[in-house]
Design a protein around this nucleic acid. Structure first.
Lengths: 249, 249
DNA sequence: TAGATTGTTAATCGATTAACAATC
DNA sequence: TAGATTGTTAATCGATTAACAATC
């Protein structure tokens, strides 16, 4: 059990990196080339910005415009999009609808995805009510908690179920992705059950390093770590201000 | 107002990168060298793991052990720690207490930091109750909301205040960091007010690209984007399974 | 001293970006 | 055709990691 699984969580925010040695050809979805991890993360932002443009009935956008709206360098944007194929028109730009479709396809969002939310405490309930999931391709199909006192409660129209029902839930609701919003102390144990039930992608909010088998993708969101990174920069800015004699009161 | 500010949000999770041209020497805190951004993000994880070791009264840890617990390569760990100075003992390892102190110092956590939470809706209330902030060096010192109907309410012992009071709050509570848990539609406007009030670090949960002046550090957490990145990998895994003829039912 | 482990070097890898030929 | 903009090249930069000399 410990030997067969591998620690996949990577520190910081550039986590979820794949460490797979198979041929790049296996990774091709449709006619596209293998997409770098850094590019994948940005595609989600481009898709969001394109959605706003589409709502405004803007039909065409240049790499310069789209890059500015997404907060990235335009060369980087063009390189990112080039991994999906050649969907731009020289001298014109990109068709908003076409590009939206192609990015959606690359991100696997043409099938709507069902997600299981594990843990309905403080954070879990907030995530259960987060409208941004639904608008961007995800349906929370099940709420699960390990605490018996919470099982049976109805939250946002869903009945909270027990971890023992995970296998059935994952099967019935065709769930591939689980969100873990549980205490650090229970996280590895519950994670193991989620994996055993057939989930192959996990988003972990518990501040703990989880171990999962190689076929499972793991990403994490460490809220306090985000603040600590900002704290580092505050510290640096203050040290710089002191050295230059600025901001003393 | 638009010319003086710069789009700092970077797509994906490797955001918050500094793009500053000043001398590396300015960045030195104490005797340490300039710390790479990727290293800073991992320091938060090391600190968390060291906390667990300390609770278990473990006094010394080798880079191999600490790296395994943090889910990283041991060479990477040693390189990361080398940016802080030379705190290990050859043939022995690292003293847990010393290393905890040095990382805390580097991350600017030796001063407890007050944070303003902007937006007390669904997600904001969950963040207000998140115990992990307090245990890792942050005190939520103020709750703020732009919605007049929410102002005056008491949440977790704090009275919700209006955005017009931001300047006074930031000054009185010595707030350098703000967490934005507000709708995308209001985010840039509120962000501008937060910056005008004197906040120099922002953690943004709104799914929108924010623009801030160069002296402000901005990080973002895009929850739906996290799921979209996992969706990409699900898609890839399914495509690979189809090609190899596995998992057909 | 012998064994263990750090801190650093150097090779490698992946990501970024300016520049520009291709082309609409 | 002339102007605009893409897609790609190649240089550069930053991050990762194996290997090992230094040293406790």
């Amino acid at each position: 059990m410990t030997a067969e699984r591998e620690t996949r969580a990577v520190a910081g925010l550039s986590n979820g990196r794949r460490v797979d040695a198979r041929s790049p050809a296996v990774y091709r979805a449709g006619e596209a080339r293998a997409v770098p991890e850094a590019t994948v993360a940005r595609l989600a932002t481009y898709l969001r910005v394109l959605g706003v443009l589409g709502e405004r009935s803007i039909s065409t956008v240049s790499s310069e415009e789209l890059a500015a709206a997404a907060g990235v360098n335009s060369a980087k944007l063009r390189k990112d999009l080039s991994f999906l194929g050649s969907y731009g028109i020289r001298g014109v730009g990109y068709d908003v609808t076409t590009l939206t479709e192609e990015i959606s396809r690359t991100l696997g969002l043409t099938v709507h995805r069902s997600v299981a939310l594990i843990g309905v405490g403080n954070l879990g309930q907030a995530l259960a009510g987060y409208a941004g999931f639904a608008t961007r391709g995800f349906r929370i199909a099940a709420l699960v908690d390990a605490d018996p006192t919470r099982i049976g409660a109805t939250i946002r129209g869903l009945v909270v179920q027990g971890v023992d029902d995970l296998e059935r839930i994952v099967d019935e609701e065709q769930i591939a992705i689980a969100v873990l919003a549980i205490p650090a102390s229970a996280a590895q144990e519950v994670c193991d059950k989620v994996v055993a039930a057939g989930v192959t992608s996990i988003l972990n909010f518990a501040p703990v390093v989880l171990s999962v088998p190689p076929h499972v993708d793991l990403r994490k969101v460490d809220l306090a770590a985000e603040l600590q990174i900002l704290s580092f920069h505050e510290n640096r800015k203050n040290a710089a201000a002191l050295l230059s004699g600025v901001g003393q009161s």
